[in-house]
């Protein structure tokens, strides 16, 4: 059964289109991964789900259906009931997400219910769960007194505080050392297995993605260009960009070309990967943007080479 269904979602500002007709489904109890290069639209896609888009970026079209309700049509008040409680978010930038003038304790207890003692007990429990040493003392610290990794774990604790059914985790482990990263992965995997927590997991780290997600969607310049079960994607990537990504990882210091970012208002005439693709043929120039082609019930790819 699906928990979240993103259908033909397009995001953009007045000048440019940023995310283009992206569709994916997250089933109940599933960990779905979004992979993609820097600037491909991972963060904005996830923020749009709970309508926390930065000023100037809007949902242009599409539906976001969470438990049968279309969130794009929901008013702010109803949305507030869903945010944090039903859908929690771990932001990419922990420093900007924490309030600098409130202590860690105040920020966690703010989202908890119960009397003062209960909230404190639960806050300590949560900090322990995410592996923060000295939880009791840390409650009194302000964000600037914590290291980058500690702030990240406080963020994770806050997001888990209200037992959400969907967790959106935007690069939750990038600030952590490998031994903590693996512990956070384990924590999320066990919340997923034991409590059935569904997770939208965003990362550009191939190793983390491989061992946490069940299915993965790959974004490139705002397009979903491939979707596959995680083992298949890593064993036999189909899209030329996905192949390039796997290659760049294995070959140390690979000779990838400069990928200058293009923010121009240009409407994509053809395939978004055309300029950098090493497998392009005449067909790719002649035709427009390739459709997302279903190769098998579980695999989709947006590339003309797979046209039947």
């Amino acid at each position: 059964m699906s928990l979240l269904k993103v259908e033909n979602l397009s995001l953009g500002s007045d000048r440019i289109s940023i995310v283009k007709e992206v569709s994916f489904v997250i089933h109940r109890g599933e960990i779905y991964g979004l992979l993609g290069e820097s600037g491909s639209g991972k963060t904005l896609t996830s923020l749009s789900i709970i309508r926390l888009l930065p000023p100037g970026v809007h949902i242009l079209s599409g539906k976001i259906i969470f438990k049968e309700i279309d969130l794009t049509g929901l008013d702010e008040e109803n949305l507030r009931n869903i945010r944090g409680k039903e859908i929690a978010l771990i932001l990419q930038d922990p420093l900007s997400a924490l309030n600098p003038v409130l202590t860690v304790g105040e920020q966690i207890e703010e989202v908890l219910s119960g009397n003062k003692a209960e909230r404190k007990r639960r806050a300590i429990e949560l900090l322990k769960e995410v592996g923060l040493p000295d939880p009791e003392m840390r409650l009194r610290n302000y964000p600037h007194e914590l290291s980058g990794g500690m702030r990240q774990r406080v963020m994770i604790a806050i997001s888990l505080a209200r037992d959400p059914s969907l967790l959106i985790a935007d690069e939750p482990t990038t600030a952590l050392d490998l031994t903590l990263q693996i512990q956070i992965m384990k924590l999320l995997l066990s919340l997923n297995q034991k409590k059935g927590l569904s997770i939208l997991f965003i990362t550009h780290d191939l190793g983390v993605m491989r061992w946490i997600a069940r299915r993965v969607g790959v974004l490139y310049k705002g397009f979903l260009i491939e979707e596959a079960p995680v083992e298949d994607l890593f064993k036999t990537p189909l899209h030329p960009y996905a192949k390039e990504l796997m290659k760049a990882y294995s070959i140390e210091d690979s000779g990838t070309e400069m990928r200058a970012l293009n923010l121009k208002t240009q409407e994509h005439q053809g395939c978004p990967y055309l300029a950098l693709c090493s497998e392009k043929t005449e067909k790719c120039y002649k035709k427009g943007v390739p459709p997302l082609i279903a190769i098998s019930p579980k695999r989709k790819v947006r590339c003309w080479h797979y046209e039947k």
Partner: peptide, 16 residues
């Protein structure tokens, strides 16, 4: 941590 928010292909570029 200058490359921790970058994907492998951009990271490779920055290292270069």
């Amino acid at each position: 941590e200058p490359t921790s928010s970058l994907d492998v292909s951009v990271e490779a570029q920055i290292l270069k």
